[in-house]
């Protein structure tokens, strides 16, 4: 099993859509996939046709009884599972944070229990991923970290000042019409050895996917973004490779 944690280098880079698309693509490649929404804003579920009002999720299920967190697990397709965050009231959220702080290895253990059932677990994390950040659980060291960014000046500035450590960099919404985007991609390719050699293009299909309440691979199987994500999945299979 490989755990991949995806998070934006800043907010609004489209991480959630990438998680949904990537989970779907890995599934089409015959992998058993679980997508876990670790973002309190709880949007990942919308890519899988859950109702706007639906409030279920691991955070809600685990509220009364710690052990019942996994009851929120949903099967989207045979071999493709989703664990939404759930909708919590503000005070409940604060309580969850306290709880997580008290048990920093909460998700390490939870991932342990999921271990046998999946080839891939994709975690959709909020944009900031500094340890000890509120709402962000501690993860095991074996997790493959993947930072989603757009080829723009803000991301470049953040990359230059904060760096990305050993995290993989995935460029989303790449638009080769833009000179700046081409230049940045070229520069990053030169400077960051962890830049994934497959970008995801800016494609209307990617934007339409959420509005259509499905992952892009399902919504627009013949779009370029779909092929990009499929290539990304293939790359993951080779890179984070494990014996399936």
């Amino acid at each position: 099993m490989t755990v991949v944690a995806l998070s934006g280098i800043r907010g609004g880079t489209g991480t959630t859509s990438v998680v949904a698309a990537l989970g779907f693509a890995l599934h089409t490649l015959g992998q058993r996939v679980l997508m876990v929404d670790l973002n309190p804003r709880n949007l990942l579920r919308l890519h899988f046709n859950l109702a706007l009002e639906s409030a279920d999720g691991w955070a809600v299920a685990g509220q009364e009884d710690e052990a019942r967190w996994s009851e929120a697990l949903l099967q989207v397709l045979e071999g493709l599972h989703l664990l939404p965050y759930g909708t919590l009231a503000a005070n409940a959220l604060a309580g969850l944070e306290l709880h997580q702080r008290a048990h920093p290895d909460l998700w390490v253990q939870r991932l342990q229990t999921l271990h046998a059932h999946f080839d891939w677990i994709l975690l959709d994390l909020p944009a900031t991923l500094a340890d000890g950040q509120p709402g962000v659980p501690m993860l095991p060291d074996t997790v493959m970290r993947l930072r989603v960014l757009e080829a723009d000046a803000a991301c470049h500035a953040l990359l230059s000042t904060e760096g990305a450590g050993d995290d993989y960099l995935l460029v989303n919404r790449f638009d080769p019409i833009s000179q700046l985007q081409r230049d940045l991609l070229l520069l990053w390719g030169e400077r960051h050895s962890r830049l994934i050699p497959q970008v995801i293009h800016r494609d209307e299909a990617m934007a339409g996917a959420l509005a259509w309440k499905s992952p892009v691979g399902y919504y627009a199987p013949d779009a370029l973004a779909t092929r990009d994500v499929r290539s990304l999945a293939t790359w993951l299979l080779a890179e984070g490779g494990h014996d399936a």
Partner: peptide
């Protein structure tokens, strides 16, 4: 190669 249509959709 890929083609980008005026509506912003791209096709490989």
């Amino acid at each position: 190669a890929a083609l980008r249509l005026p509506d912003g959709h791209l096709y490989p």
